[in-house]
Design a binder for these strands. Structure first.
Length: 489
DNA sequence: TTTTGAGTTGTTCGA
DNA sequence: GTCGAACAACTCAAA
């Protein structure tokens, strides 16, 4: 069973009758949820709560697209709990204030949750724990979000890793990740009387969904937030795409990637579930299955590495991991930034990616690298600008992966791309979208351009109606980037 | 302490 | 068309 960190208050006679509060955060699911499972096993009646906290200091507000996902996840979680005779009670406010008042209101005996790893989140959780200790209430935290706790993977010298491959080797030495746990068979919910504690709010009152204008239409048709959607997506991936994962995952026109990122972000599914379901599917698969399996697990490994980095570099979203990048002469170019954001750079693969992002809240991994490289190297715009845009527009944006990957592309990160690795958007398009299907899907202006020139439409003839002229010329931008990056050393 | 091998995803150029 | 080298050194992790 997953290790729990418990700080126990003194148990009083008759204490088992007092409810346990399960505080949901980035773990919006019932299966493989260690906090919920421990609550079920405690013998206490359960109260399920979510606290929308926009008041605690330092917490980064959830981005726009992710708020939409959060709304859907909360709705689904409440419905699923409802099927079992329970419900999700939602509160708003600073967690360190709300949780102790809930404990009083419910006369609770314990509070369980699954851990978070950002500095501000840890500080909040620490404050809650301190408050509960003063109330002599049991507080237990669990690992529901990662395969390995960030502090459990250490170099031989006992420190954190800054190179992925060494990190991943050490993780292998730590052994196979724990198997996921099923939904507890028995969930006994506390009958919540109308007490004097904090009053729950309606989900709609959190205003997580966009209105006027409602820009979430593309997301609704692309995604099903919540645990059931997550399980369906994982099964679909394991059945249909895992067998070709290593060879096909780089082609944005095929849906060969797992598409699990937003589900993992909000814990609609756990990485243990993804790991073990893929394991089982590959075991049933034939020749070459292990190569695909290892590739997929390798990607889960990068997610782990990002959390490892976040744990040891809490200001990763704003500070270069390599300080020499502080001297980088980033350009201040509002027009170029806007063209990039709106998918109007004149480079089809870049524009397709940025429009896919805007419409669906998600972008294929290969294209993320291309558009990020384009912003940082071709336009010489600070990676933080890109990070903030992704934060607001991605449904899967989280405080570990988003900054870690931006810094990786920019070259300022851990184990980062060398500065001379500058993607050529034309070559990347021709290599990974050879028929131009991906581009045509997202850039309708290019619908009639033949595959031979779809990634270099300026060669297709005179101006294409509605499609922008390139905002920079590749060769020129490449030389400029090499020069700027070369000066850093 | 010093040494040594290694390090996600690329592009261009010239032979 | 294909191939190898250059693009740079630097830092990490382990022996």
């Amino acid at each position: 069973m997953v290790e729990a960190r418990t700080m126990t208050g003194n148990m009083q006679p008759g204490d088992e009758a007092r409810p346990v509060i399960v505080w949901f955060r980035d773990d919006l699911r019932l299966s493989d949820n260690p906090a919920l499972r421990a609550a079920a096993q405690s013998g206490r009646p359960i109260v399920c709560v979510f606290i929308h906290d926009e008041e605690s200091e330092g917490l980064r507000p959830v981005g726009g697209a992710a708020r939409w996902w959060l709304h859907g996840s909360l709705q689904k979680l409440d419905a699923t709990l409802g099927d079992r005779g329970g419900r999700l009670s939602i509160y708003a406010g600073a967690a360190a204030t709300v949780v102790p008042r809930l404990v009083e209101g419910f006369h609770a005996g314990a509070v369980f949750w699954n851990r978070r790893y950002g500095a501000a989140e840890r500080k909040v959780d620490e404050a809650v724990k301190t408050a509960l200790k003063a109330q002599q209430i049991e507080a237990s935290s669990f690992n529901g979000h990662l395969l390995y706790e960030p502090w459990s993977i250490r170099t031989k010298a006992g420190g954190p890793f800054r190179v992925f491959s060494a990190f991943w080797r050490a993780a292998h030495d730590a052994g196979e990740p724990e198997p996921p746990a099923p939904v507890p068979s028995k969930l006994r919910f506390f009958k919540e009387p109308d007490m004097g504690g904090p009053r729950p709010v309606a989900l709609a009152d959190l205003a997580l969904e966009p209105s006027a204008p409602d820009w979430a239409g593309g997301m609704r048709s692309a995604w099903q937030p919540g645990e059931a959607g997550a399980q369906a997506q994982l099964e679909r991936f394991a059945d249909e795409h895992l067998a070709n994962y290593a060879d096909c995952r780089d082609y944005p026109g095929r849906s060969s990637t797992s598409r699990l990122s937003p589900y993992l972000r909000f814990g609609n599914i756990s990485p243990r579930q993804a790991w073990h379901v893929a394991n089982a599917a590959a075991g049933a698969g034939g020749h070459g299955a292990s190569r695909n399996l290892e590739k997929f697990q390798f990607e889960l490994g990068w997610r782990e590495f990002s959390y490892h980095l976040l744990y040891y570099n809490s200001d990763m979203a704003v500070r270069n991991l390599q300080p020499k990048f502080d001297a980088m002469p980033w350009r201040d170019d509002t027009n170029a930034l806007k063209a990039w954001q709106q998918g109007r750079t004149g480079y089809p693969i870049v524009d397709a990616g940025m429009r896919e992002l805007w419409d669906t809240g998600w972008m294929h991994n290969r294209v993320r690298m291309v558009v990020a490289s384009f912003l940082v190297k071709h336009l010489l715009i600070d990676w933080r600008q890109g990070e903030m845009w992704f934060w607001d527009t991605l449904v899967d944006a989280d405080s570990a992966n988003n900054p870690a990957n931006w810094q990786w592309v920019a070259g300022s990160g851990a184990d980062a791309a060398p500065y001379f690795r500058i993607f050529n958007p034309v070559l990347q398009g021709e290599k990974f979208d050879p028929q131009g299907n991906y581009v045509r899907r997202w850039v309708p202006e290019l619908a009639d351009i033949p595959p031979s020139v779809i990634h270099r439409p300026w060669e297709a003839g005179p101006d294409i109606a509605g499609y922008p002229v390139r905002i920079v010329e590749h060769g020129e931008a490449r030389r400029r980037a090499l020069e700027a990056y070369g000066d850093l050393a």
